[in-house]
Design a protein around this nucleic acid. Structure first.
Length: 654
RNA sequence: GCCAGAGUAGCUCAGUGGCAGAGCAGCUGAUUCGUAAUCAGCAGGUCGCGAGUUCGACCCUCGCCUCUGGCUCCA
């Protein structure tokens, strides 16, 4: 019988280097030592190593044979390490400046890092500056960051002595028999790592804001103070990120919504309820008309359902039990309870069920711009992105089992066709399927789920779409595909969703009569393209930065007379534009052209038509396009043709 | 809901325990002008709402409303 291999009996191991060399190294040698010995290129710049696919410290000894490579600051997975280490430096700075502070946790997150602290006073902006300053000093000190591994009990004693109750909690809850902690200049943090080898390797960082955060994210727990920051490999990347934040701020739909007079939210009326001004309403109508045309072309039918209904409807659907906290209810004079609809699905099922359906009637693609009201907690409301009253471009497809692939395919085709028209090119598809280990929590039979999941996959494959698959992420009533769309400044937004629903057909016991005369249950697919019109409108404002394409622009053209001497001609041009169906207006102010142009540019009007005596003599306009400038003289009819086609074809460019 | 910050003219924002301020927008007048701001004058306010402290509160205290950023993405 052979002994299990141990470092003593097996003092060396084979390691494959990035250049393909296979070398034998002594047990206990660290990644950095191996890199030095075998003269790996740029080893001085490396911040960590990757061993058998896992990121490890440069000082970590290799536990077994395998593949070793170095991680450089510019590598994609370096960012997480840089940010995590920067968060430790921030915690050290806070402990140095405010020794009574207790540290909780400080991970790297999507675009930066945070650290949660407990202390009596909140952090002020001045504190933040001071902390950042101290962090730079710690970087300057270039402290060694070292990993230590100790028995769990030792770690517990250590954090107990340091009076760090949150760290103690993590050691107790999360540590195996061996706990790892990191130490730099006397600052210790229970942490998995990996980290950069010394604080001097950090530098391009900035603290961004403070926030309250519940301990472990639970409202039952005390609130800690969180500091958010971000870090990058280089100052240039940090600057670029900060500039991107600035760009996003300039495009903020709340700001542009006010500047362009698109919508408002009124304090007296209540929060989360949107008032659409004339300009915003034009854009909204155009967005809706466009999709309505696309749906009509694809065989959808339109319905309209009531905003309120007896509680009974939502008891049958199950919403009354599962969705109650979000529902508004009303009580009538004769003590009847009515519910303000939070979803359109039950209404559509009502219409489906209003008659006997034959297999020949299917599929039925039933669409509605359905306005729903949902109570959302005040703290979650945000501009148009999260509101309490909103309109869904909702549709439900009722179909036979043999039609599901075709229907899903149709939904995916529609998604791309619609968003490409707005200039979105980058889509991310996410497939959520059930957790096979937890079958009892789902509505619907195995057979139904298998067919539905297969249909989603088949449709995705047929359209050659790449997608992420999420096991166990499906909601209880059916599998789904969510679609994220990336906007002009690279931000992904979850918009469309295509979901099977095995719950409602059963609850309402809807059916169709099949070829064989049997009553059978149809498949029901819930799908939305824009999702919420309000939210999508907000996204569009930010996507275009307020510069709507001609077909969406509230005012498409503004006539700018050079002086009152040509006001008669200006009015005649305006009249012809309006007769041609264009949304146009005339600047009748006594301003000079320069001012008129400036005002039109600020109002983001796509076409500016400067008219003076020269144009009046030649039945022309001098065309200026926003953000582009003077385009020269154009005959009025030619301009009208151009503007009409840009509108009719829904072109992105004026 | 909870934490922090904020709320002053239509908009963007100064300001102080003792008469409320600017720029832009608006109105009036002059200017009639060629591709991102013509000049002058006038008007504009329950300083988010409600209490309290004070001789006196926009300012200090408390409550409420609204907005903004957040509220477990490996210890």
């Amino acid at each position: 019988m052979s002994e299990p291999r141990s470092p003593i009996t097996d003092p060396s191991r084979e390691v494959t280097l990035p250049d393909g060399r296979v070398v034998s190294v002594a047990a206990g040698m660290s990644a950095l030592e191996i890199a030095k010995q075998h003269e790996l290129p740029r080893r001085g710049r490396a911040i960590a190593a990757r061993f058998n696919g896992r990121a490890i410290d440069l000082h970590a000894a290799l536990p077994e044979a395998g593949h070793l490579s170095l991680i450089y600051p510019e590598d994609p997975d370096a960012l997480e390490i840089l940010r995590h280490s920067t968060s430790h430096v921030m915690a050290q700075a806070v402990k140095e400046l405010f020794p009574d502070t207790k540290i909780a946790q400080g991970p790297a997150i999507e675009d930066g890092f945070y650290y949660d602290f407990r202390r009596d006073e909140p952090f002020t902006d001045e504190d933040l500056e001071q902390i950042e300053q101290r962090m730079r000093e710690i970087v300057e000190r270039n402290l060694q960051i070292r990993r230590h591994e100790v028995a769990k009990a030792v770690a517990e004693r250590m954090f107990e002595q340091e009076q760090e109750p949150y760290k103690l909690y993590f050691v107790r809850e999360k540590s195996g028999p061996v706990a790892s902690y990191y130490e730099q200049g006397g600052f210790r943090d229970f942490c998995r790592g990996p980290h950069v080898p010394s604080t001097g390797r950090l530098g391009a960082f900035k603290l961004l804001r403070t926030a309250g955060a519940y301990w472990l994210g639970s409202e039952q727990n005390e609130m800690l103070w969180r500091i958010y920051g971000t870090a990058f490999a280089t100052e240039q990347e940090l600057d670029a990120y900060l500039q991107q934040l600035e760009e996003a701020r300039k495009r903020d739909h709340r700001r542009l919504g006010k500047e362009l007079d698109l919508f408002s939210v009124q304090e007296v009326a209540g929060s989360g309820l949107v008032f659409w001004h004339p300009n915003g309403t034009i854009v909204r109508h155009e967005i809706e008309s466009f999709l309505r045309e696309e749906l009509t072309r694809r065989g959808y039918v339109f319905v309209t359902t009531p905003h309120i209904a007896r509680d009974q409807l939502f008891r049958v659907s199950g919403h009354y039990d599962y969705y109650r906290e979000n529902m508004y209810t009303l009580r009538t004079a004769d003590d009847e309870e009515l519910v303000l609809k939070p979803m359109n699905c039950p209404g559509h099922v009502m219409i489906y069920d209003a008659g006997l359906r034959s297999y020949r009637d299917l599929p039925i693609r039933m669409a509605e711009y359905g306005t729903v009201y949902r109570y959302e907690r005040s703290g979650t409301l945000a501009g148009l992105f999260r509101v309490r009253g909103f309109t869904q471009d909702d549709a439900h497809i009722f179909c036979r089992p043999d039609q599901i692939v075709e229907e899903i395919d149709g939904c995916l085709e529609l998604v791309e066709a619609v968003f490409r028209r707005f200039g979105f090119e980058d889509f991310r598809f996410e497939l959520s399927v059930r957790d096979p280990g937890n079958a009892e929590k789902y509505a619907g039979t195995d057979e139904e789920w298998n067919a539905a999941e297969a249909a989603l996959v088949t449709a995705l494959d047929r359209r050659h779409l790449t997608y992420q698959r999420y096991e166990g992420e499906a909601v209880f009533y059916g599998p789904k595909i969510d679609v994220k769309v990336v906007d002009a400044i690279g931000r992904p937004w979850q918009l469309s969703t295509v979901q099977f629903d095995f719950n409602l057909p059963r609850r309402f016991d809807i059916a169709f009569v099949d070829q064989d005369g049997q009553r059978k249950q149809p498949y029901m697919v819930h799908r939305a393209i824009y999702g919420s019109i309000e939210r999508f409108f907000g996204i569009l404002i930010e996507h275009f930065g307020g510069y709507f394409p001609v077909w969406l622009a509230p005012v498409q053209a503004r006539v700018l007379p050079v002086s009152e001497k040509v006001s008669e001609y200006a009015e005649s041009v305006l009249c012809r534009l309006q007769q041609a169906g264009l949304r146009a207006e005339c600047d009748r102010s006594p301003d000079k052209v320069g001012a008129k142009i400036r005002n039109a540019e600020l109002a983001k009007v796509p076409y500016m038509l400067v008219v003076g005596p020269r144009e009046a003599d030649s039945d022309a306009v001098s065309l200026r396009i926003h953000q582009q400038g003077d385009q020269g003289s154009v005959a009025v009819d030619a301009f009208i043709e151009r503007a009409r086609s840009a509108t009719a074809e829904r072109r992105l460019q004026p």
